[in-house]
Simulated scan of single mutants.
Amino acid sequence: MSDDYEVGRGKPPREHQFKAGNQAARGRKKRQSISLPEMLEKAFNRRRQIKRGGEIVSMRAGEIMIERFVQMMTTGSPRELVMMFSLIEKHAPKFLEQHAAEIAITYQAAEGTNIDLPPSDLWETDK
């Protein structure tokens, strides 16, 4: 060992330095950066417990979110319904194509009303 070793900031005396094989000598592990899509995937796949009726059910967070969207769509205002359809149209257009034949629109006139029903040719499609 040479005697010209200078002790100072970041240079501890040799007797206080890490010994060979010490894991702490490597330093801290560096954090891996995680992207937003990875964070969302991790959050959506995490299981949560919700109360459904009288029982507690374990579901993935993404499934819970979709169920709440559907509930909001079916019980909410027309504005929320439009919002849901726009989300489905943007992110899952094949879903609307697959289930389009299952959608049926029925008009019923209330008793005593003088408003005419829309013409049936308005709803016919050219296939």
Results as ranks from 00 to 15, higher is better:
residue 75 T to A: 07
residue 25 A to H: 05
residue 11 K to A: 14
residue 111 E to G: 10
residue 121 D to W: 14
residue 20 A to L: 06
residue 81 L to I: 10
residue 89 E to D: 06
residue 72 M to F: 01
residue 48 R to F: 11
residue 122 L to M: 15
residue 65 M to C: 11
residue 97 E to D: 15
residue 12 P to W: 05
residue 28 R to T: 04
residue 61 A to I: 00
residue 22 N to M: 05
residue 98 Q to R: 04
residue 54 G to A: 08
residue 111 E to N: 10
residue 68 R to S: 10
residue 12 P to V: 02
residue 124 E to T: 14
residue 101 A to L: 01
residue 35 S to E: 14
residue 56 I to P: 01
residue 49 Q to V: 11
residue 105 I to C: 09
residue 98 Q to E: 07
residue 21 G to S: 03
residue 2 S to C: 06
residue 93 P to L: 01
residue 32 Q to T: 14
residue 126 D to H: 05
residue 124 E to D: 15
residue 37 P to D: 12
residue 92 A to T: 08
residue 44 F to S: 03
residue 15 E to P: 00
residue 90 K to F: 01
residue 24 A to C: 07
residue 95 F to G: 02
residue 8 G to P: 02
residue 80 E to H: 06
residue 105 I to G: 08
residue 9 R to Y: 12
residue 82 V to P: 00
residue 63 E to C: 02
residue 125 T to F: 06
residue 2 S to P: 10
residue 35 S to R: 09
residue 8 G to H: 03
residue 126 D to V: 09
residue 8 G to I: 03
residue 75 T to Y: 07
residue 34 I to L: 09
residue 25 A to K: 10
residue 50 I to W: 01
residue 108 Q to H: 11
residue 99 H to Y: 13
residue 103 I to W: 02
residue 119 P to L: 09
residue 28 R to N: 12
residue 121 D to V: 14
